[in-house]
Amino acid sequence: MPQFDPTFFSPQLFWLAVTFIGLYVLMARVSIPRIGAVLEERQRRIDENLSKAAALKADTDAAIEVYERALAESRGKAQAMIKETVDRMAHEAENRQREVGARLAEQIKAGEARIEAAKAQALASVREVAADVARATVERITGQTPDEARLAEAVATAMEKR
């Protein structure tokens, strides 16, 4: 096999040394820094974008928090306002009801008094009419005027029986 022929050991070793050292220098000086720079730049860009995204997210969170707080605040305020209004309305309604009730009771009482008076008056006039009728009846039948006192007594007795 030609691999074991020492004749060509020296030229192979020499050119291996030359090419490999050349390759090492090219890699170390040119290729690796270039690729490394590209990768680093990309990593830097990615990191930058990530931190930017994180900052934006923090901003958003803060804005949301402010909004939520404002919302809760106004909700509480509205609730208090509603409660206050409802209380005031209820109070007012109660007052008015009490006032109206008192007035009605007064009117009822006045009415009852009026009715009572009318009733008494009516009863009195009924007695008078009954006495007149009785006197006229007696005059027509007997032809003489009856005694006022006896007439009144008779009418009272008759009305009592009723």
Partner: peptide
């Protein structure tokens, strides 16, 4: 003997291609 052989040629080709 440090003759430029076919072996050396392909080492050079390889280095050039890699670069």
């Amino acid at each position: 003997d440090i003759s430029f052989t076919n072996s050396a040629l392909f080492m050079v080709v390889s280095v050039a291609l890699i670069t």
